[in-house]
Design a binder for these strands. Structure first.
Lengths: 188, 188
DNA sequence: CGCCATACCTAACAAGTGTTAGTTATGTGT
DNA sequence: ACACATAACTAACACTTGTTAGGTATGGCG
């Protein structure tokens, strides 16, 4: 049932998906939903939390599975790829989260915040580690970089089309920009 | 009246803003709105279009006002700053656009597309120019870069807080990443 | 003054929303 | 066979939504 709801939210956004619509696609009647859940907010919150946890797990796994002597660039690429894969490939929950977070009632957003913060902290600690190691430039602010990274990655949801290229290729493209920048190196 | 609507849409999103709410804040009654507009969709579309046109104008002006011999980096920084300024500082219409585009009915989104495409084309032509000039790396795909750039910039709307730093400083931070990347240069 | 367009108001409409109470079918364990 | 939990259904509720029809002030112009 949650699967159905997550898919609908991802496809149509929060406002256009009523309980009756979810119920219909799930093959039951609207009232019956209240046997499984206490309210619409509860459903939405479940989906939001599950969405973050899915990306979080994917990203954490990707980072941890790197060799001990892996370079900062390799680790970063793995994390970016994992995030994008969860978002665009694996999980309706993750994509639903990104799509509808800005549309749900404030109370639901607040309830989702702790889970969200936990994922953000994972990124912050990764980036801080790379910075202490000397690979990441000392003058970049970790919080800003994390916001920029996740923001840029999440935005792909709005236009990504698997027919035009793989998630992995897209991840490499994005990583290239973040790692090396887009301008030709000048002889200063 | 449109000003009021744009502000409410920016603040609360599409779904939570009813005609009655707009009317109330505007100091009239709901029915009276139909003297000025034909439908809610018409209002929303006006705001969406005006939003894009505002960023477009700001960005174009910023680029055109650069000296003829300005470097690619300087031009790029000006464009980025202009986009962010329109979004975070100047125009409720621009911010409303970014915030609610994904929430409005498909028909409204479609109607807004031409205006949107025109702005995208402006970026594409700028980036293509820089690439032909040799400043922008030859192997970056202009379309992808534009999607990434605008996506990253638009995402700032969700968290930017003027109390924590100026728009201009943020623009420089973002430009730094795009131009030079985030990793320390290595001796290969 | 009367005429008329402008700008608003009131009151209702049909449709859709989340939610609840009470009821019914379906199997499982004793 | 009976009891019981599970999982559904029906039908209604109170409310909000975009929208419309018809009425009412206001003020400028001949």
């Amino acid at each position: 049932m949650l699967d159905v709801a997550a898919r609908l939210f991802r496809e149509q956004g929060y406002g256009s998906v009523s309980l009756r619509k979810i119920a219909q696609v799930g093959g039951i009647k609207a009232g019956s939903i209240y046997y499984h859940f206490g309210s619409k907010d509860e459903i939405v919150l479940s989906i939001l939390d599950a969405g973050i946890k899915a990306v979080h797990a994917e990203m954490r796994r990707a980072v941890l599975s790197q060799a001990a002597d892996a370079s900062a660039e390799v680790i970063l690429r793995a994390a970016i790829t994992a995030h994008l894969r969860a978002l665009l490939d694996v999980s309706d929950y993750s994509s639903a989260n990104v799509r509808i977070f800005g549309q749900v009632p404030q109370s639901v957003r607040d309830a989702n915040l702790p889970t969200r913060r936990s994922y953000e902290a994972e990124w912050d600690s990764l980036l801080a580690r790379l910075q202490v190691g000397g690979a990441l430039k000392q003058n970049v602010d970790v919080r800003h970089l994390r916001l920029m990274l996740i923001g840029a990655l999440n935005a792909t949801l709005e236009w990504f089309d698997p027919a035009r290229g793989s998630v992995e290729a897209l991840a490499e493209t994005y990583a290239d920009v973040f790692v090396h920048g887009i301008l030709e190196k000048q002889d200063v």
